[in-house]
Design a protein around this nucleic acid. Structure first.
Length: 103
DNA sequence: GGGGTGACCCAGT
DNA sequence: TACTGGGCCACCC
């Protein structure tokens, strides 16, 4: 799998996250590990930072539910509009979603 | 080619 | 509860 295809796979998976639900970078990396053979939360993070413009990036948070630095206000607004459970620190990880659940 | 950096994560202190 | 250190892997200088 080429790095380019890996990016596509990440974006594709992010697009499948239902509204009001979220996924951690680590969860995305882990879910793609089976298909791509490589998994790295940092890698997913950098991919979102660079190519996340076309997908609901606000549904991807870190393992603590923290929102991406510099986009916290934006993400909060969008998540709130989708009915995602929000906490003062970020999102409620009870809203965590997994590909298995969504099929 | 070598080294620093980052929208990360986990374990230990 | 907060901070630190190590591991991770692609990108940029």
């Amino acid at each position: 799998m080429t790095p380019d295809e890996y990016v596509e796979a990440v974006l594709d998976l992010v697009e499948r996250i239902p509204p009001g639900r979220v996924m951690s970078y680590g969860a995305v990396a882990d879910a793609l590990a089976e298909r791509s053979g490589r998994a790295s939360a940092r890698l997913v993070g950098s991919i979102m930072a660079r190519h996340g413009g076309g997908v609901p990036w606000h549904r991807v948070v870190n393992s603590a539910g923290r929102l991406p630095p510099g986009h916290e206000v934006e993400a909060r607004a969008r998540l709130r509009a989708e009915g995602c459970p929000l906490r003062p620190s970020g999102v409620d990880m009870a809203a965590a979603w997994s590909p298995e659940e969504g099929m």
